[in-house]
Structure formats: C-alpha cells, structure tokens
Write a protein that binds this DNA or RNA. Sequence first.
RNA 1: GUGGGUGUAGCUCAAUUGGUUAGAGUACCGGACUGUGGCUCCGGAUGUUGCGGGUUCGAUCCCCGUCACUCACCCCA
Length: 416
Amino acid sequence: MEVIKAPRGTRDILGSESWKWAYVSSICREVADDFGYKEVHLPIFEHTELFSRGVGETTDIVEKEMYTFEDRGGRSIALRPEMTASMMRSYLENEMRSANQPVKLWGIGPMFRYERPQKGRYRQFQQMDIEAIGAQDAFVDLEVINFSMELYRRLGLSNLQVLINSVGCPKCRPNYRKKLQDFLKPEHDKLCDSCKNRFDRNPLRTLDCKRPVCKEITANAPSIMECLCDECKEHFDKLMLGLNRIGAVVKHDKRLVRGLDYYTKTAFEILSGDLGSQNAVCGGGRYDNLSEAIGGPHVPSVGFAAGIERIVLTMEAQGCSFGKEPSNKVYVVAAEPCVRIDTMDLVRKLRMNGISADMDYMDRSMKSQMKSAGNMAQYACIIGSEELAKGIITVKNMSESTQEELTIEQLISKLK
RNA sequence: GUGGGUGUAGCUCAAUUGGUUAGAGUACCGGACUGUGGCUCCGGAUGUUGCGGGUUCGAUCCCCGUCACUCACCCCA
C-alpha cells in the first residue's frame, strides 16, 4: 500500500523550521503588546456567507479559491480564506461596540485558499492579522501601518517597499470608476482577456494588470486622486502628513488597488525585494463598509494581514537572526548496557528539575551515544559501574571537551 | 484554471548512441580505540529509478498518461 502524503499545497513545519516560526510569533506578540492589541483565537471555519458577503461575491477568493463544504447539519461552511471578516463578526457578535473604541485585536493562524502552489504561496498558510475596529481617524491608519513597519524592523528585515494609496469610498469611487471606464472604452478591444472580463465588474483592477498591453493603455489613465471626495481626500492627506512626521519611507502608488471588496480609503501593501513573484509580505487597509456588508451597523475600521511563510522566507534570504535554536542541555550516556535503568532514572530526575535531558533507547554503543550527545546537547552525563560505585556522575562539557565528577545534587545545581 | 522545468538510497547527485548485478559522497550502524563525540582508516545496511501503460530481445534513459515538487501566468499573505 502506498504511504499517504500531505495534500497538495500543504506542508509540515518540522523541528528544524518550527523554532523559527515560534520566534516570529513571539515578536508578533511583543509588538502587539506594545501597541495595545489584544490576542483573539477565532474559529478556522465560518458560515460561507460571512465571506461571500464580507469579502465580496465577485472576488477571486470567494469565486474560485474557497474550501467550502456542507456539514452534517446541512450548513454551508467555509475554511477561512482570510481573518478580517471573522474579526468583524466577532466584534459584532460579542458587542464590542460598548467597549472603548477603537477595539484593537490581533490573531495568528492558518488560512486556506485553493490556488496553484508556488514559492511563497500555499493552500494552507499562516497569517498574522491585526485590526483596529470602530474608529474613523486617519491616525489609526497611521498606527496600523506603523505597526507593520515596526514588526519588520524588529524582525530585522530590510529591502522592503511600502506602497500606499486611497481607493475612495462608496461616495466617490463610482465617479472614478465611470471616468476610468470612459477612458478605457475606446481601447477595450486591445485589453487582455481578464481585463476585458472585469471591465464591467471591477475596472479598477486593470490599473495593476501586469501585461504590457494594459500597462501601456493605462499609462495615461486618470488618477483616482482627482476624483476623491473631500472626506477621502482629507483622510489621505492627514495620513500622508502623519507618515511624513514619523519619518516613514512610503511610495504613493496610484495604481495600487485591492482585490477585496470591503476596502475603502487607505490601501497599503509591503513588498519584499527578496521573494519571487509572490512578494507581498503584508497587505491591508481601511474597510469602513465591511460591518454593514455582514449585517452590522456602520463601523469604520482598519487593519492588515502579514504572511508568516513569506516573512520567514525573506528572513532566511537576508540572513536574519531567529534567536537561538533550542537544544537539550544534557544527553545521558550509558557506559555499559546494564546501567540503562540508572540512566533512565537520572534523565527523569533532571527533567523534574527543569533541565532538558535525553538518552538513547536503541542500545547503541557508547561511541554512538557520545556522538548524539555532541550533536544534540551541551553536556554528556556518563554513568557506568565505576560511577555507580562512587555515587557520582561523569559530566562532560561537549563544546569545551572538559569533564568533572559530580554528585546528582551538584549536577542539578550546576545546570539549573 | 494555463504554461515551462524536475522526479534515481534519509539528503546531494552519477550511470556511455537504450545493454545485462543502478553507483558515489554524506548521514546512519559496527569496528580500529575491551568506558569518551568532532579528525583518520576499515567494514556494514539501505532502492518497486514517483506511479501506470507503451515501443524494444532489453528502458533510469525513448513515447503517452497520471501524481507530486518547482517556477511563472493569474491572484494574493
């Protein structure tokens, strides 16, 4: 029988990598604490409707990338493709409107999208997500962008580019949309197939189409900045002023649009110069319409999601530090097979005292056991009939090649 | 969903125009060193050549299909 393999687009994060993940999440937690965000644990699956209404019926994510199934009670369920909609659902469901606004939440966990895997893109992937819910002020947008930059600064990342734009609001975006459509109409036949396709549904996406034909056509397209309403314009100016004040280096990319329907006003993205074509390590923005889309009152909010895989990949490419890789303090070596019961007991006593310890269970030679000690521990603790007779343990420091004889009590107080 | 590249030992890779028993390095285990890792030397174990079919006297090699990995399109974290 063939051994069953992990499904396509999923992967096992094994010991040699998982400590790096633990390091990255610990930094996420630190920054979240410093910025006053509270951690939440949300369900990995939700009602399909939450995403189809929240993220948008016509988005790629909902249209062709969701893992959807019917549960045994006949409900349509989806594995979450992103966390923002769940965050808003939780805010509404738990009546967080009665708390101090904005409510600042963060979370980390797996997301699921049915896509063709490639570098930095998986069907199950990990995201860190932060949301500031319930405030309109552009300085909250500023805080959120600053949060992402601070996170990357602490992780030691470099060669990043921050892109920022405004995508308007329901008041002004339709005007721009109309203006853009009028501009594109004469060139409609020349556009690429997918842009032709979205001409009616989502013409803004033509702006960030990478095909040369479309790029050429849109080179002189009207900018959304000309169409923003006063409110959106002021919001954007205030944000840019703030970014300037904190010395943030950002690029105003007038072509930046977002694929998710709920974005309003601020949209931003951070790109890594050390990834392949899947180079966004962070994407976010303001979503003042999400709450209403899923049946709530008007709740202006802003947040972002960062991809953990892409962060780790970038850190590896840039040789960033992940802190110290954890290893055992002690490997207990049996000099003779007959003392294995004693090595077991020593391992147990060390562990009881909070000293990480391990030993051989394969009846291997002493030489082999010493090898393991050298590979996976700082100290080898050798026990044989001589040690038992004298009531001591031979303790060898593997990196310095020095050794001494200690009683168990001395050993514990030395290593604790 | 579309296209390119790649699948041989745990890992990195060989194998002549298609040729008989598929090799090496590394890691692993044992020994030289009858109780001490790293260096050296000796020995040992390990494969459904991704899977299925086809061509052939004969396929790791050629052809078709399939699966997986990978990169790109698309989309996005």
